[in-house]
C-alpha cells in the first residue's frame, strides 16, 4: 500500500535564485508540488519560472544560479544531497526533458541517429550495432516512416515536426520515469502540433511515465493534462484538476490570476472585441 503512494517526485519549497551584480533575481520562490504517474501541466506567462522549475529538477541551472529547497525527492531519494555524478546518471535515464525548438536543441554537426544512439549508450552497456537497432526501433515508435534513411540525416535536413519527434525519441530511448516537456510544440506549425502531442501522449501513457508539461497554452493544458499548476512570479497561484479550467461552475473557486489569464483568451465563436489585459497584484507574491 505505502509503496504505491510514494510519489515519483516531491518538491517542497523550491527556490531558484540568480546572484547577479545588480542583486538577487528570484526566478522560483517557494514552489511545492508532487508528481505521480500522471500528466501535470505548469502554465504561466513568460518569466513566471516554469522553465526554471524544470531545469532545477534536472540540476541544470546555469552559473550563477542557485537551487534551494526544503525537500526534493525522486522516488524517495533525496536529490539535494545526492553527489553530482549520481545526479548526472539520473539525467536522461530517470528524468528527461524535451525542449522547445528542435532547430536549436539538436546538435547541427551530428546525424540525428547518432545523437539518439548516444543517449542510449551513456546509460546502457551496448555496442554500436545494438544502439543502432534500439535507435531505429525508437524512431519507428515516434512514427518516423523510414528510420534507416532518417538515421543518417543531419538536423537541418529534417522538418520541425520530424525534428521534435527525433527529440522525443532521443529523450525517451533510455526509458525515464519522468519526462519534462518544456513547451514541446510551441515552435511547431499548428498542423503538426497535435500529431506530435499525440505521439508524446501515447508513449508517456503506455510506459506509465510521469509528465510535467510546461506550456503557456491554456487550451492545450486543459485538454492534455490531468492537473494544472498556475504559476506567476515564481510562485504557484493555484493547483487544480485540468478539466476545471473549462468548467464555468468552478470559476468562482479560481484564483484571480487564473481568471485573468482565461480572460485574455480570444474565443472563435464569441468575439469579445477588445481583449482584457492582465492585472497583476503584488500581494500574490507576498
Amino acid at each position: 500500500m505505502s509503496e504505491a503512494v510514494v510519489a515519483l517526485l516531491e518538491v517542497d519549497n523550491l527556490k531558484v535564485n540568480f546572484h547577479t551584480p545588480t542583486g538577487i533575481v528570484r526566478a522560483v520562490r517557494g514552489l511545492s508540488f508532487s508528481l505521480g504517474r500522471e500528466r501535470l501541466g505548469i502554465v504561466g506567462e513568460s518569466g513566471s519560472g516554469k522553465s526554471m522549475t524544470g531545469r532545477a529538477i534536472l540540476d541544470l541551472i546555469p552559473y550563477p544560479g542557485e537551487v534551494l529547497a526544503d525537500r526534493m525527492l525522486f522516488r524517495g531519494e533525496d536529490l539535494l544531497t545526492m553527489p553530482k555524478a549520481t545526479r548526472r546518471k539520473l539525467r536522461g535515464r530517470r528524468i528527461s526533458m524535451v525542449m522547445q525548438d528542435p532547430k536549436f536543441s539538436l546538435n547541427p554537426v551530428m546525424t540525428v541517429g547518432d545523437q539518439i544512439a548516444e543517449a542510449y549508450r551513456v546509460h546502457h552497456k551496448a555496442n554500436a550495432r545494438e544502439a543502432r537497432e534500439r535507435t531505429l526501433a525508437m524512431l519507428d515508435a515516434v512514427q518516423i516512416r523510414e528510420p534507416e534513411r532518417v538515421y543518417a540525416l543531419y538536423p537541418h535536413e529534417v522538418s520541425g515536426g520530424m525534428g521534435q519527434r527525433v527529440m522525443i525519441a532521443m529523450m525517451l530511448i533510455a526509458e525515464p520515469d519522468i519526462l519534462i516537456a518544456d513547451e514541446p510544440t510551441s515552435a511547431l506549425d499548428v498542423t503538426v502540433q497535435l500529431q506530435v502531442l499525440k505521439i508524446l501522449d501515447d508513449l508517456v501513457t503506455s510506459r506509465g511515465m510521469g509528465l510535467i508539461f510546461i506550456s503557456h497554452d491554456l487550451h492545450l493544458v486543459q485538454s492534455f493534462c490531468d492537473r494544472v499548476i498556475v504559476m506567476y512570479g515564481g510562485k504557484a497561484m493555484e493547483t487544480m484538476p485540468a478539466a476545471e479550467l473549462a468548467d464555468p461552475s468552478a470559476m468562482s473557486r479560481r484564483h484571480p490570476y487564473t481568471l485573468g489569464l482565461l480572460g485574455c483568451l480570444p474565443e472563435l465563436g464569441n468575439p469579445k472585441g477588445r481583449l482584457s489585459t492582465l492585472t497583476r497584484d503584488p500581494e500574490w507574491l507576498a
Binding site: L58, L60, R88, K89, L90, R91, G92, R93, S96, M97, M99, Q100, D101, F104, S105, L106, N107, P108, V109, M110, E118, A119, V122, H123, M167, M170, M171, A174
Partner: peptide, 24 residues
C-alpha cells in the same frame, strides 16, 4: 540549446564540451 540537450541526456561534462561544443 543543443549543449543543454546533451546534458539532459546525461552525457558527461567532458563529452559535452569536447565532443558536442568543440566539434561545432
Amino acid at each position: 540549446q543543443y549543449v543543454i540537450a546533451a546534458r539532459v541526456k546525461g552525457m558527461s561534462e567532458a563529452r559535452v564540451i569536447w565532443r558536442h561544443a568543440l566539434r561545432n
